[in-house]
Design a protein around this nucleic acid. Structure first.
Length: 511
RNA sequence: GGUCCCAUCGUCUAGGGGUUAGGACACCAGAUUUUCAUUCUGGUAACACGGGUUCGAUUCCCGUUGGGACUACCA
């Protein structure tokens, strides 16, 4: 079997879309599964869209999620350079060959010429005007112009593009690994520009040339490329590379969570979830985009989530490490239908992965948050906190955000809870409890509980009735980990102080 | 509009000519936790429609509808 060589070939036009990360992942999984090579190539043939920092962003993002590059940008390799802008002469050579063989031609039409042509065709009733086997006979190109005029134009440096001479009647077929046979009639394909007037190739040419030169075995890319895939097949044929043509696999697209359409940055902004792997600040527009990393997603969880967007192992196993994914992955099990992006599932995966981590590691997350707040905390205490909060955390930052009251006494109290649960009985119990707690020599969760039970028994009030009020006085809110553990963690003095504060602050409410 | 792709619970999906159409997320309910959460148990919920083919179609074929992509000297 042919050596598996796959490539991820993004354009450095901004932050890497999460769909791009999934594409990279599938490529990577295939490469690893068959001991092949994963190549990173930068498709920067559009100078006008180049965004500084995008290349670094792509590399950092891939590194963060654990997709290692074997060859290409930042790594080097036998087919360097891996930046298309640095491979310019290669493409021109190929274009020239196509022209010499009669499969491509020079076109000198200006933008106005093209616009006029489209207008003309539209008024004549043509639905989608194209530069093709019919219309090219009426345009200014090396097919219609006399040879010396073409030579003169070229010599004078008149701007031109190179277009592919698509045959008039030919069935173009390709066997997509995901979709099966796809057939398109050549009359539906237009004479695509191969070389732009600035001397740069377009995607189509550069892509085919580089994939061939870099000995790519499988082209795994988004479905948006499916309509132009037949064109690429034609290119392989005319370049004489048909035998080495890679296999194609066009991935289903990532769709909006609700409604219709492709997942876009706007969705992320509106629904409040990230759509990029890392935070990104566009240097030109100053626009900010938030990333999964900064939102608190663990790379392994993101990978697991992404892998299941359009692929499944056919078993009921859902949690997969990267190695397990590599083992289980096959192109055959990739689905065909577009996939709606559901952030809930991503959160669920994150929670699973977070819980599976050691308390030592989780304590580090908490300690990091605390350091940012300028709060001191012992390792021992952090471990204790993390172990009681573990079951409820989805993100590393939750330990701090949902456990603030472990470090800072509440100054205000949840109003609805106050009106529901703060009553005379509660005040009686809390007053007595505060007293009892202060008399204790040592204080832990068990003693906290026993003492509370003693107090309620003496007063003849059900513990359940006032527990919410006690929690309120200690934390200010109605939700959190086991209350007795909370009290143990903050200690006897603090418990007494907080009950005292609540008692005085909430006095008015009862009266 | 044209070309191409797609279609199983709200979402991700398994399945496949005869199944109680399975799982996961989400949601709801009950149990446990003297609270919330966790955990456990249970529940609501799907083969888009119409024709064929067939003894029998959700499954195969065709059409309709719906959705998506592409339709640039962008990738």
């Amino acid at each position: 079997m042919r050596e598996v060589r796959v490539r991820f070939a993004p354009s450095p036009t901004g932050a890497l879309h999460i769909g791009g990360v999934r594409t990279a992942l599938y490529n990577f999984l295939l490469a690893r599964k068959y001991n092949g090579k994963m190549i990173l190539r930068i498709e920067d043939t559009d100078q006008t869209r180049y965004v500084p920092g995008a290349e670094e962003y792509i590399q950092e993002a891939l590194k963060w999620v654990g997709i290692q590059i074997d060859e290409g940008l930042g790594v080097g390799g036998p087919h360097a350079p891996y930046r298309q802008s640095e491979r310019k002469p290669i493409y021109m050579q190929c274009a020239l060959r196509l022209i010499a063989d009669g499969n491509a031609y020079y076109a000198f039409d200006t933008e106005q010429d093209l616009e006029a042509m489209r207008e003309r065709l539209k008024t004549a009733g043509v639905a989608s005007p194209q530069y093709n086997s019919i219309t090219r006979t009426q345009m200014r190109n090396s097919l219609t112009l006399p040879e010396d005029e073409v030579k003169a134009l070229l010599k004078d440096g008149v701007p031109y593009v190179v277009r592919l001479k698509v045959p008039r009647k030919e069935e173009v077929r390709l066997n997509d690994l995901i979709r099966g046979w796809v057939m398109v009639h050549s009359s539906q394909i237009d004479d695509k520009v191969l070389m732009k007037s600035d001397g740069m190739p377009t995607y189509h040419l550069a892509n085919v040339v580089d994939d061939y030169l870099m000995k790519i075995s499988h082209v795994i890319r988004g479905e948006e490329w499916l309509p132009s895939a037949p064109l690429h097949v034609l290119l392989y044929k005319y370049l004489g590379w048909e035998a080495d043509m890679p296999q194609f696999a066009h991935l289903p697209l990532l769709l909006k969570p609700t409604g219709d359409g492709k997942l876009s940055k706007r969705d992320a902004d509106q629904m409040g979830f990230p759509i990029f792997p890392l935070d990104w600040l566009d240097p030109n527009t100053k626009e900010k985009a938030s990333g999964f990393r900064e939102a608190g997603y663990l790379p392994a969880a993101l990978i697991n989530f992404l892998a299941f967007l359009g692929w499944n192992p056919g078993t009921t196993q859902e949690i997969f490490s990267m190695d397990e994914l590599i083992q289980a992955f096959t192109i055959e099990r990739i689905g065909k239908a577009g996939t709606k992006f559901d952030i809930h599932k991503a959160q669920w995966f994150n929670q699973q992965y977070l819980r599976a981590e050691s308390n030592e590691l989780l304590a580090k997350y908490l300690l990091a948050s605390l350091a940012g707040e300028g709060i001191q905390c012992s390792q021992e205490k952090a471990l204790k906190i993390v172990s009681v909060m573990k079951e409820r955390a989805v993100f590393p930052k939750d330990f701090w955000e949902q456990g603030k009251f472990l470090f800072v006494a509440p100054i205000s109290f949840d109003d609805s809870l106050v009106s529901k649960r703060w009553n005379d009985d509660a005040v009686k119990v809390l007053t007595a409890y505060q007293d009892a707690v202060q008399k204790l020599d040592t204080f832990d969760a068990v003693q906290a509980k026993n003492t509370l039970e003693n107090v309620t028994r003496e007063l003849g009030i059900g513990t359940g009735k006032i527990l919410a009020a006690l929690r309120l006085s200690i934390t200010g809110v109605g939700a959190g980990p086991d209350l007795m553990m909370i009290m143990e963690i903050i200690g006897k003095e603090e418990v007494s102080k907080r009950i005292g504060y609540a008692l005085s602050a909430l006095k008015v409410k009862v009266a």
